[in-house]
Computed example of a mutant assay.
Amino acid sequence: MTEATIGAGAFDRDTAVTAREEGVYGAELSDQWTIGNAVNGGYLLALLGRALGDVLPHPDPFTITAHYLTASRPGPATVRAATVRVGRTLSTGTASLAQADEEGREVERIRVLATYGDLAALPDDVRTSAKPPQIPPYEQCLGAKDGMDPANVPPITHQVDLRLDPATVGWAVGEPSGRGEVRGWFGLADGRDHDPLSLLLAVDALPPTAFDLGLSGWVPTVELTVHVRHRPAPGPVRVAITTRNLAGGFLEEDAEVWDSQDRLVAQSRQLARALLD
């Protein structure tokens, strides 16, 4: 198999937007990025990020915050993106995605506020106490489809190359650790290397930490904020996600994404709803 390059992979095809008029884009939400009946939130964020990159003068998302209003479904969608402010080094914009409901009425699915800049123009100094997650080598980790009934594998699983740390998958055999941790290697199935937009997918592509807390079922995202810190080096990234607090039926997930050069390239926090029994 020939590895896809940035701009020519399934991720690029399925996050494409087509300009209809100034600030208005058409999009087709692919059913290949779904879990159950819902479209993955990181995929949606990347699609909106692509539209914002077309509107704003700066190339890279620095920080992007999404509020998920209603569940998106595969099919046509309308994206609206607008500039809020343009400065010399940063620009800010807003975007939303809407779909028609069964009666043909437009329903807003997600709304985003983001600030863009140029990651290549940032200084090289790094002062951090953060350390890369300790994950076994790729070959010793478990594929997302390992042990699953082929008939029940979510479509998104075929689009990503996910290898989970065996220490964080006890929930898959009925033995969750209770620590609220999930770690693994993450890449795209067609071999496309990562860029800032695919990092928006990476922070939301692992199984939810709720599974490691002993819960099961859908964990819908309420709000997700991603900070992109560097352009990632070629190769898969390592993603570590933790939850420290589940209260009132809601939990937070904090994610770190590290590239092959041991650089922290993205961070995120999301608020999600835990559907308790």
Rank of each mutant, 00 (worst) to 15 (best):
A189N: 01
A189Y: 07
L206T: 06
L188G: 00
A189G: 03
D204C: 06
D195K: 11
G180T: 05
L201F: 13
D204Y: 04
L206C: 05
D195N: 14
D195S: 11
F186C: 07
A205Q: 14
H194L: 05
P196G: 05
R183K: 15
L201G: 02
L188Y: 11
D193S: 10
R192C: 05
D190R: 10
D193P: 15
D190Y: 10
P207M: 02
D190E: 07
G178A: 11
G178Q: 13
L201Y: 13
E181Q: 15
A189T: 08
W185A: 04
F186E: 03
D190F: 03
R179A: 15
E181V: 15
L201V: 12
D195A: 12
W185S: 02
A189M: 03
R179K: 15
F186T: 03
S198I: 01
R179N: 14
G187Q: 02
G178I: 09
A205F: 13
H194G: 06
G178C: 10
A202M: 08
A205E: 13
G178T: 12
V203L: 07
A205H: 13
G187S: 06
D204H: 02
W185C: 04
W185K: 00
P207D: 02
R183P: 00
D193A: 04
R192N: 09
R192D: 01
D195E: 13
V203P: 09
L199N: 03
D195Q: 12
A205W: 13
L197A: 00
D193Y: 03
R192K: 12
F186I: 03
R183H: 15
D193V: 04
P196F: 13
V182R: 09
A202C: 07
A205S: 15
G180P: 08
A205T: 14
W185D: 02
F186A: 11
V182F: 02
H194S: 06
L201A: 09
